[in-house]
Design a protein around this nucleic acid. Structure first.
Lengths: 206, 206
DNA sequence: ACCTTCGTGGTACGTTCGTATCACAAAGCC
DNA sequence: GGCTTTGTGATACGAACGTACCACGAAGGT
């Protein structure tokens, strides 16, 4: 049976199994055996491709971040051919909301990792800072451009506003996740916020 | 030795030990034995006052929510004798930010519980919804009053704004928690947001 | 054609965890 | 003052977990 196999691919498959079971039962409850079963391989194999559980978890986080980045990019690209700044900003912020199973799992697990990182320096060294900071930079740049095109209300500080919007999006996402608020209500809150930032030339986008 | 003892008090002491050790090592890592050691009692005693770990965790959450409520109330009361609406709003929002050890632990553990609640219906039935909803109602009412006193910029929807501000505060709090942003930067973001909501009669309060 | 390396399975080990059990002393009740 | 209840200690148990170990079949290289 043992043909030569692509390690990277195998690792990705197993990490995807990890993400699935973690999304279903919670990151705290996932064990090597269950990941193996979900991936349809033996426990030994999980050990073989990841020597330790910690490494498996790290790789799972990387996978999660990567997939999420792709998702956001896709959303932004889908925002239209020559999208207005507001449509771009909206796409960026809405993509982070847990509106379907995939984004819900992402939000759930990312928060789980973040909580673990509070007490785990090794985990805290992972892309927890890098990734959100990049998003903040990107959004700030978007707002600056809109500002130069005189599309924003006066008195808006691009950087502070970007940070605030991203934090709001994250907070709303958590609210959705725990069932406190519906996805529709979250988008309404976000939309109202954008209405107050952008000059009234209402393009509410899709 | 066995004098008659106040159960409620004992349970609170043990739950406080739970909160301490959970804040130190993460909620996922806390065991009955460690809680017992932290509280300075035997494992048996923890079992005696809480029959099961689940009940201990529930009680810990209740304690956390209660203490946090008191903290917010204290902050709001300390906002001044006849505080302006903006000072009140600011006190409410800032109190939720993890600026010191106590609020940091609160934010950390509350988020931990929230993550667990995603996959645990019994935990989800605890005050996860009730409490934030109450905060949203209170903040909405505060904004409405400010609105009637013509202290707000036009075009502000009190309810949507309240929800947005609370979500932003929560999101900023998480950012502080994971070391992505400093407490000062978070308060700056929040302050800027309030500046754009309240009419310019700048009282930045303490 | 041999031999090394790679992929894989099965299983055992040591630890830790939550919980249950046994034992017993002090206090309250009548 | 005997007896029941209450508080407390020590320890045992069964399960689950991460990890380590042993064995072996099938390719690849030369």
């Amino acid at each position: 049976m043992p043909k030569r196999v692509d390690h990277a691919e195998r690792r990705t498959e197993i990490a995807e199994a990890l993400v699935r079971v973690a999304g279903r039962r919670g990151l705290h409850a996932v064990g090597m055996r269950e990941v193996a079963a979900e991936a349809g391989v033996s426990l030994r194999l999980v050990q073989y491709y990841f020597q330790t559980k910690e490494k498996l978890l790290f790789f799972g986080l990387e996978l999660l971040a990567e997939r999420f980045g792709e998702r956001v990019s896709a959303r932004v690209r889908a925002a239209g051919d020559s999208p207005g700044p507001r449509a771009l900003v909206e796409a960026l912020l809405m993509a982070a909301l847990p509106t379907d199973d995939e984004s819900r799992t992402f939000h759930h697990l990312y928060t789980s990792y973040a909580v673990l990182a509070v007490n785990d320096p090794a985990l805290a060294a992972q892309p927890f800072i890098k990734n959100p900071d990049a998003a903040e930079d990107a959004l700030t740049e978007l707002l600056r451009q809109a500002q130069e095109a005189a599309l924003l209300e006066p008195g808006v500080d691009a950087r502070l506003e970007a940070a605030g919007l991203l934090a709001m999006s994250a907070g709303l996402g958590t609210g959705i996740l725990v069932g406190q608020r519906s996805a529709e209500s979250a988008t309404a809150v976000l939309g109202h916020q954008l209405n107050r930032i952008f000059r009234t030339g209402d393009e509410v986008s899709t």
